[in-house]
Design a protein around this nucleic acid. Structure first.
Lengths: 387, 387
DNA sequence: TTCATTTAGTTCACGTTGTAGACTAAATAT
DNA sequence: ATATTTAGTCTACAACGTGAACTAAATGAA
């Protein structure tokens, strides 16, 4: 339902429009902004003035155009005030990253450790220490951290991790256990990684990000927005049915994608004790390892066929461990997609490996907070009001 | 991207807010509207005044509350001015319906005829005659028809029917071939039927409408909005993979849902020449017919499992021929859903037969136009400006 | 019956915000 | 130098929502 619009909301929306135009359109003069937004020069001048005063935009000096007329002054997003913290708990590391408004990484920290089967309280305690460190560093840089988001692989909702197959967690109130001086939100790793690709990788307006970990999740971006379903649990690609009477799955069903292309199945089929071992085997051209990838790839192709038919995707990005396995997976996946989707759609969707790799989740997490600021900069304009 | 907001847009949005509140909240006084919208009494008074003048709202006389204080005057949507035309081409009939703003059917016409393999030009010519008739009747009733929408089963985009398995059509520019004195838009039958259920049936904010015809389509409603994918082709449930090495499908793949639960497969398995024959056989408890439904139901359950995992649906509505087959389908479908989704999600989504049956598509088609008027009533306020 | 009380709706002075066009500033071209 | 062109600011103005005072119409108590 649409909300009532008052003068205040009108202003807030127009600030968003200006900020958004600068964010997408690179350096832009006030005159150019007036043209792209449809607002008048005077209005743009006022809005830009306030945003500059607030430290959200910065002037970059006169634009030397070499053309006739007074050169305009270009403005860009300013990285000097607002920033956001992205956090990730993965099987074998903890990571924290602070991004500024421009998307630049201003500080970061990473702790390698095996989180498999660790107690949630312990892991979150360690993450809290890591985050606190990074926040202190951001403070020294003069940054105001607007919030944090935490990526955990597996279904998540309302601050609770329902199940994290990577970590062996079940119903963990992660958001409550992590005490930080900024608001923390919890999100699915696949969703946040998808947003990371959208904003800082080679995301387009519509694509599916597939996160291959112990479980297989997916983040769906449509029209530049994350699709998260009725209760926020969309994207369980791992339990899309590949073969109705296939191997039993931990979900209670049979023949889910996870039983073919989940990390455990993949390592077992590849006769490898670990992912590095599998990669090494693939590197030396080991037949068993290659066959394992090929059949996982075909299963992934089947599941993605269903996804494309339902969701009308035009690009698929493979992330998580699939990024490293991409050279051995992409052939079989494409083959299935081309055969099964060529008839009705003409061409199957484009496919690529994640460009950000393991960084996608923290970037997306921080980006989520950054984009909320860009979408509603009004609360940060208090400075201007004082003047 | 958000658009700039000027005074004009502010007003347009607030008109929408008021109209929307009345549309959802039944009869409402100005005072109540001020409360639910958050606007002040004076603003609401002005907006309601203009909407009443324009013939979009109507006062229903004093609300006898029996309580203290002056009784308010309730307003409701007015069916006396704006209306919309919904059209449908089905295998064995053509239908047209005019709805007013309140959702009441003001006039309708239907022509039984077998459209299987008919030439598009002929069918659309006949539909044009039917529509023209109904439009004339609407005109006599004093209604201003704001637009029309046409439902055709199968993938559709940009005014073109890419393929209609029901009719045997391929790449038909239906919107161009239908000449009417109002703007006509073309849409997928499953999508429009889903909207019909949403607005005039027992739709909720989130559900999947499954349309079982010769092909099997689906319309996905999330957060009260139709989801149509990157290029508007979402919802091809019929080609979700049930068994990777199953029977060959016309799409080039194997084991698609359509090869198990499409009308042709269903009739062949049920050993019936037509749908009425199958229903008759089911009615007398014919074993072959029942088994055919059961196995189609299980296949449908598999495909829906994949859909629920990807889309996080909380309700599924079965439409098209599945509405009539519901008593024999629902058991097997639920069984599969419960087994495969019970583990992770707790409960499978609710399921029901379409309440509107064959009327869903025309209602949704007209409703689509109606809801566009409700979302932007400003263009209809010219009357008020004159005063 | 009368009058206080309560709630609905209208009116109007006012504040906030965007607009239009005049005006100033700073460059290039002649 | 001076005209021309484009950028940005300034100011009177208009559109719209706000808030408080005001009128309208009911109930309930004296």
């Amino acid at each position: 339902m649409t909300q009532a619009v008052r003068h205040e909301e009108m202003r807030a929306r127009n600030l968003e429009v200006v900020l958004g135009a600068v964010s997408r359109g690179g350096p832009l003069t006030r005159a150019a902004l007036a043209e792209v937004t449809g607002l008048t020069k005077s209005t743009v001048s006022k809005l830009v003035g306030d945003l500059v005063d607030a430290g959200l935009l910065a002037e970059t000096g006169p634009a030397r155009a070499g053309e006739r007329g007074r050169p305009g002054v270009e403005v860009v997003l300013s990285g000097e005030r607002v920033a956001a913290l992205g956090l990730e708990i993965n099987v074998d590391y903890l990571a924290a990253r602070v991004l500024d408004l421009t998307g630049a990484v201003r500080c970061a920290a990473r702790r390698e450790r095996d989180n498999r089967g660790s107690r949630p309280k312990k892991v979150l305690g360690e993450l809290q220490a890591l985050a606190t460190e990074v926040l202190a560093e951001a403070h020294r840089l003069g940054l105001e951290v607007a919030g944090a988001a935490l990526a955990v692989s597996g279904p998540v909702g309302d601050g609770v991790v329902f199940s994290a197959p990577n970590l062996g967690w079940q119903d963990v109130r992660a958001a409550d256990l992590l005490r930080l001086p900024v608001p923390v939100e919890l999100d699915n790793e696949a969703n946040l990684a998808a947003l990371g690709e959208l904003w800082y990788g080679d995301g387009e307006r519509d694509f599916l990000y597939v996160s291959g970990e112990v479980g297989i999740g997916a983040g769906l971006v449509v029209n530049g927005t994350l699709y998260s379903g009725a209760t926020g649990l969309a994207g369980e690609l791992g339990h899309v049915v590949v073969t109705p009477d296939g191997p039993a799955c931990r979900c209670g069903g049979n023949g889910c994608l996870e039983t073919y292309a989940g990390q455990e199945a993949l390592l077992a089929a590849g006769n490898s004790p670990s992912l590095p071992a599998l990669l090494a085997a693939l590197g030396r051209g080991d037949r068993v390892a290659r066959d394992a990838c090929a059949s996982a790839g075909r299963a992934l192709g089947i599941a993605l066929t269903s996804a494309v038919n339902l969701l009308d995707l035009d690009r698929i990005v493979l992330g998580g461990v699939f990024t490293q396995l991409y050279p051995w997976l992409s052939g079989p996946v494409s083959e299935v997609l081309t055969t099964r989707l060529g008839g009705l759609r003409g061409a199957p969707p484009a496919m690529s490996a994640s460009r950000l790799g393991g960084d996608a989740a923290t970037l997306g997490a921080a980006g989520r907070v950054i984009h909320r600021v860009l979408a509603d900069p009004a609360p940060f304009l208090t400075r201007a009001q004082e003047a």
